[in-house]
């Protein structure tokens, strides 16, 4: 089979990463911000897999699993907190949470 050049996958990862970054910075809704964070993490996982392919090692995929675990953990606690905020403050606006400042 013709192997896909890893650098192409890395370029895709860069694109996804910056899209996620833009999402975090631009969206005010917490759920969207969490999703954008997932996109960034996923991009990092993509680089790991691509790098593993470039070196012919399984380490890349192991690290991808690590990223996956991490994403799962972050989503779990993130969503729990978001639910809590939704219940307590009845808003998902990230900008509304700015009482701590100065």
């Amino acid at each position: 089979m013709t192997a896909v050049p890893p650098e192409a996958a890395v370029l895709l990862a860069c694109l996804l990463f910056t899209l996620g970054l833009a999402g975090v910075l631009a969206r005010r809704n917490l759920v969207f911000i969490l999703m954008a964070l997932e996109i960034m993490l996923n991009a990092a996982g993509l680089v790991f897999v691509a790098a593993g392919a470039r070196w012919g090692q399984a380490d890349g995929q192991v690290l991808f699993i690590v990223v996956l675990t991490l994403a799962a953990a972050e989503v779990a606690v993130g969503l729990a907190l978001v639910l809590r905020i939704h219940r307590q403050a009845a808003t998902l606006d990230a900008d509304a949470a700015s009482r701590l400042r100065g």
């Binding site: 970054l21 631009a26 005010r28 990230a94 900008d95 700015s98 009482r99 100065g102």
Partner: peptide, 13 residues
């Protein structure tokens, strides 16, 4: 130190 999380994130970026 506006207290706005997106502003902070922008600074990290």
């Amino acid at each position: 130190q506006t207290g706005q999380v997106r502003w902070y994130a922008a600074w990290i970026g």
